[in-house]
Amino acid sequence: MNKNSNMSILLKGILLENPVFVLILGTCPTLATTTSVIGAIGMGLAATAVLICSNMVISLLRKVIPDSVRIPCYIVIIAGFVTIVQMVIHAYLPELYELLGVYLALITVNCIILGRAEMFAGKNSVGKSALDGIGMGLGFTLALLLIATVREVIGLGSFAGIEIPFLVDYKIEFFTKAPGGFLVYGIMIAVVYKLTHGKAPYKKEAGCKGCPSAAMCSGHSCEATAKEDI
């Protein structure tokens, strides 16, 4: 498959470069909002909207923004879109706004969005960046949905708020709490690694490529870490 064909840009976000299971970006919202299926879908779609918009705008401005100040510029663009999404959700879906709480504002510092801006949108055309945003966003949403389904079905005996007969009598509340989140996420990554064996190379060392802060630290802090390890 041609590496740069539009279809593969769209699909790689969902499978081979899934931001949650393979690139290991955006761990904070992944763990925090997957206690319920509704919250996970809301968070996923909100982040997708921000991701598509910011990817397109950053791609449009990639020749205008000077290289040395690109990170602050990206952050301002992203924060702008996050504010818009916050206001829309507050106005039309107040219950979801309450449910997501501070995590909605924290989409600003979600590593996926800054990471994609840095890794993809800053170097590619508008159309491709939009596709990348859609693919990554859908991959993020699906991954969140998967984790939330496991946690809600086992932890609360329900799916999207609808109680499942029988399971509801045997709730394991551990899974809706913080430790359950870490546990399910860890097992999921291991399962995805097993299923895509060899094709998910980022699992062990995401390195500077997967780190949105890499541009700011110019690699010296991670390099220092890497050197000490050797």
Binding site: I24, K177, A178, P179, G180, G181, F182, L183, Y185, G186, I187, I189, A190, V191, Y193, K194, K203, K204, E205
Partner: peptide, 23 residues
């Protein structure tokens, strides 16, 4: 550790135990 769990998965499961302790 089993091959699939090496690296991040094992780290996350360890984090789960630390988190449980804080409960």
């Amino acid at each position: 550790i089993p091959e699939s769990f090496k690296g991040l998965p094992a780290t996350l499961i360890a984090a789960s135990f630390v988190s449980l302790a804080f409960f």
